[in-house]
């Protein structure tokens, strides 16, 4: 099956009607006769204008391109980083907006010598992806699911597990718990919120909004609320109210 496909593809003439988004490379089906040295080419007849499309290298995937960032780009890298990208992406998203320069041999040599330490923006963040992570965390409403029937005290590992369920792997030492100890089950906590502080790369600090949900099965189960993460809630700790007020809720 596959071999027949390859055969029909490579024979060329059966797939003449294929559209190709590239430079047409053609071939005369009937090449003209030879002419004298230094003389005029022979008179062309209609058959000399019958062309066949050559299955050519242009259809092939173009090789990746090297570019050098000349400034800090959020989520990509810092100035001086050499990226290897698809030519279209590199051209449209980096070279034309002026975020990068071509990775020509001269530019690469210059890049090795140059030092970008003086640029402040690089120092601000511990990694190019920090801003993205911070944005993700600051918009998060973390549901901490706790038991409705068995007594508990909120501990960092509860928060860690909740983070993992929300798609963030946060080590316990990076989580700063709220100043009070929270004990349960306590249904008055259900409609309250507080924040924990997460430290990324031991440098950047982000506040993450947390809400406790009491979990049970059967008749004890709490009724479900639609879009509960969009609704504003009361602060559990009065000192945190001002900060929580400023943090935006997901739309």
């Amino acid at each position: 099956m596959f071999s027949t496909f390859v055969k029909s593809f490579s024979s060329g003439q059966n797939v003449v009607m294929q559209q190709t988004r590239n430079t047409f490379i053609l071939k005369r089906r009937f090449p003209p006769t030879l002419h004298k040295k230094g003389g005029k080419p022979p008179k062309m007849k209609a058959r000399h204008f019958i062309y066949d499309l050559v299955e050519e290298t242009n259809v092939q995937r173009k090789p990746d391109m090297k570019i050098i960032l000349n400034q800090f780009v959020d989520g990509v890298g810092k100035a001086g980083d050499v990226l290897t990208l698809r030519p279209n992406v590199a051209y449209k998203e980096y070279l034309m907006p002026g975020l990068a320069v071509y990775g020509s041999p001269e530019n690469l040599a210059k890049n090795e010598k140059q030092e970008y330490d003086t640029i402040d923006e690089d120092k601000k963040f511990s990694s190019p992806y920090v801003q993205r992570t911070m944005r993700g965390l600051s918009h998060l409403v973390l549901q901490i699911t706790m038991n409705k029937l068995v007594p508990w005290t909120l501990e960092p590992w509860h928060v860690r597990v909740s983070f993992r369920k929300a798609g963030f792997v946060v080590p316990e030492h990076a989580i700063e718990m709220p100043p009070i100890t929270i004990r349960g089950p306590d249904l008055s906590l259900q409609n309250k919120e507080f924040y924990v502080t997460v430290t990324i790369n031991k440098t950047e600090k982000v506040n993450v909004r947390c809400r406790i949900h009491h979990w049970a099965t059967g008749l004890d189960r709490l009724p479900s609320v639609d879009f509960h993460w969009k609704k504003p809630m009361e602060a559990l700790i009065p000192e945190q109210a001002a900060v929580l007020e400023e943090m935006s809720l997901p739309v």
Binding site: V16, M17, T23, F24, L26, R29, A46, F49, I50, Y51, D52
Partner: peptide, 10 residues
């Protein structure tokens, strides 16, 4: 690149 005028013998 340019336009090519010719024939196809299909």
């Amino acid at each position: 690149e340019a336009v090519i005028k010719g024939f196809q013998k299909r």
